[in-house]
């Protein structure tokens, strides 16, 4: 069953492009990555899901209900963490969290304290006295305190130190294990790689592709780094299936997709200084996608 269903969603801000014809769906229980460079339309899509903005055309539904028409009802089950968090400056953290909790029914009040302890958050301080990272922690706690069935994260890790990022990821994993579906938007691919099972790639307002993350990595792309001991022509390795070929003096670096024996044949009989064959990072695969589309 899909939790989020987006159909041909288009948003223009006046004449400026927001997103064009975006369609994808997120299944129940998965952690779904939403990847793209800044300004690609990730936040626009998310803000429509939350009915903060209205689509120009197309539709989006969550739990089978229309995001705009039945927004208030849907949002009972959504936890949202934006990339930048702002709260009422002269409130104390605990007051803000209790205010946030007051919007939901049947809240387990102990959860505030439990989450705050995990995130190492001082509840008695005033919001205006908090550092950016600490405000972010407030955001995490207020986004999760009502045990949402759908968690929407829009570039959530900025401002968190690596230790807190890890705790945050653990928390998201935990929520996911307990049944929450997660939509995770980011331009940092390594975090998506760590967390998500499927990803969709958005660029300049359009969805480029939707992939299973393992399939994507398994997609037979291998990264070759070959240091030659004898001179070969620059396009010696430029055969069918090679991408992103870079030559630095005697070192050839490229991605290869195809029959591995073909490449072994090319290397066979040549003298090498060094040879490495790696799993490419997602980043490199994506860069390849971006370029292909251009």
């Amino acid at each position: 069953m899909s939790v989020i269903e987006i159909n041909n969603l288009t948003k223009y801000y006046g004449k400026a492009r927001g997103i064009i014809d975006v369609s994808f769906s997120v299944n129940e229980g998965e952690i779904f990555g939403f990847i793209g460079p800044n300004g690609a339309g990730k936040s626009t899509t998310i803000r429509i899901l939350l009915a903060l903005i209205y689509p120009t055309s197309g539709s989006a539904s969550i739990f089978g209900k229309d995001c705009i028409a039945e927004g208030p009802e849907i949002r009972r089950e959504i936890g949202y963490l934006p990339s930048e968090v702002f709260y009422y400056d002269n409130m104390r953290v605990i007051d803000l969290l209790q205010y946030s909790a007051s919007f939901y029914k049947n809240i387990d009040k102990n959860r505030i304290y439990k989450l705050a302890e995990i995130m190492d958050l001082d509840l008695n301080r005033k919001i205006e006295d908090l550092s950016y990272g600490n405000k972010k922690k407030v955001g995490i706690v207020q986004g999760l305190l009502h045990q949402p069935r759908l968690i929407i994260l829009d570039e959530p890790t900025s401002g968190l130190d690596p230790l807190m990022q890890q705790k945050f990821f653990d928390l998201i994993h935990e929520e996911n294990k307990n049944g929450a579906t997660v939509l995770f938007s980011s331009h940092i691919l390594s975090e998506v790689q760590k967390l998500c099972s499927r990803v969709t790639i958005i660029k300049e307002g359009r969805i480029i592709s939707i992939e299973d993350i393992n399939a994507l990595k398994r997609n037979n792309y291998k990264k070759f780094i070959i240091d030659m001991d004898e001179a070969v022509s620059e396009d010696y390795f430029n055969i069918e299936g090679v991408a992103d070929l870079a030559v630095d003096k005697t070192t050839f670096t490229f991605l290869f997709k195809g029959d591995i024996n073909q490449m072994i044949d090319k290397i066979h009989g040549k003298r090498l200084n060094n040879l490495r064959i790696e799993e490419p990072a997602l980043e490199e695969i994506f860069m390849h996608y971006y370029e292909k589309e251009e």
Partner: peptide, 11 residues
């Protein structure tokens, strides 16, 4: 005060 993202995503 940029708190609209807090209030308007509430149910």
């Amino acid at each position: 005060s940029k708190t609209a993202d807090f209030l308007l995503v509430k149910p």
